[in-house]
Every structure is written in structure tokens, then in C-alpha cells.
């Protein structure tokens, strides 16, 4: 096998391989669409996070603006403290409401951010005061049944 033929083939192979990695990164993965790796951190406390997972998106008006980075339990208040990273190009007011939502009945769980009207913005490491916990379907159903039973009993 000729030297220059080997060089040519190895060149083609390496170019193809690197092209494949580029394709995976850009077209399959989210290297272009997310810049949330670099961003500011915001905390929020929830009494129940339901099925929220790490790396779940944080959305404002349905647009992904960040991702959940850390979830832990506050040992004093027994609340879940969720930390997420938010794209620095989006600023949220201090009275933003963070809620835990599910897209559809079986869809992914995400953090919804509803911006308020405060002129002061949340800084890096800041905390969202107003939160709305996850809706737990079983509790909802048992509540409904309990109410129903009470109504029946009251008659």
C-alpha cells in the first residue's frame, strides 16, 4: 500500500469521524440551542416537587430559558430547594412565580416561570419567593372523593 494512499484514506476517515462528532453535537444534540451552561443561579423552595428531575427545563411562556441543576431538601423546613441555571440574556423580576408543571398528562415535568411586574431583578444566587408546588394527582383525586363524600353525608 502506497504511503500517499494511506495518508489520503486516513485523512478521509478522520474528517468523516470528526464530521460525525460535529453532526451529533449540532444536529442531534443541543450544543447550539442551549447556552444555559453559562448563566446565573436562582433558587426556589417548593413544598413538593413531584417528579422534577435534574436537567429538567425551566420555561417562561413555554420557552426554555434554563435548566434544573441541583435539588436538595432543606433539613429545617422540609422544603425542596431547587437550584437552576438561567440564561443570562433573560432577567426575571423579584416577584416572579415559579411553579412545577407537567406538559400533558404523561409529559415531562418542568419549572414554569411567570414574570411579575417588579422593577427589581433577581441577581445571581437570588431566590424566588413565590412558588407553586407540583400538583399530585393522587392527592387531587382523594381530595375530590373526600369532598364528594362529605357532600353526600351533609345531605
Amino acid at each position: 500500500m502506497n504511503r500517499s494512499t494511506i495518508d489520503l484514506w486516513v485523512g478521509i476517515f478522520v474528517a468523516l469521524g470528526l464530521g460525525a462528532i460535529l453532526f451529533l453535537s449540532l444536529k442531534v444534540g443541543n450544543l447550539l440551542t442551549t447556552t444555559t451552561r453559562e448563566g446565573y443561579h436562582v433558587e426556589a423552595a417548593f413544598s413538593n416537587i413531584g417528579g422534577l428531575k435534574l436537567r429538567a427545563p425551566a420555561k417562561a411562556a413555554g420557552v426554555v430559558v434554563g435548566r434544573v441543576e441541583k435539588i436538595r431538601l432543606d433539613p429545617q423546613t422540609y422544603e425542596a430547594i431547587v437550584t437552576f441555571v438561567i440564561d443570562p440574556q433573560y432577567k426575571f423580576s423579584k416577584d416572579t412565580i415559579a411553579s412545577i408543571n407537567t406538559s400533558g398528562l404523561l409529559g415531562e415535568v418542568y419549572v414554569g416561570l411567570d414574570a411579575g411586574g417588579d422593577s427589581e431583578m433577581i441577581a445571581d444566587g437570588g431566590r424566588i419567593a413565590k412558588t407553586q408546588s407540583a400538583v399530585v394527582l393522587e392527592k387531587l383525586i382523594s381530595q375530590f372523593l373526600f369532598d364528594k363524600a362529605q357532600q353526600e353525608g351533609g345531605k
Binding site: I21, L24, S25, K27, V28, N30, L31, T33, R55
Partner: peptide, 19 residues
């Protein structure tokens, strides 16, 4: 097909780890 893929597949966690 492509959109859902991109929204879920993460560069660092999935692709870099795969490499």
C-alpha cells in the same frame, strides 16, 4: 423528529459522555 431530539439530547451529558 429532529426538534424533539435536539431538545432532549444534551451535548455534555449525552454526546461527550458517549465519546
Amino acid at each position: 423528529f429532529w426538534g424533539n431530539m435536539q431538545s432532549v439530547v444534551d451535548f455534555r451529558a449525552d454526546i461527550v459522555n458517549g465519546i
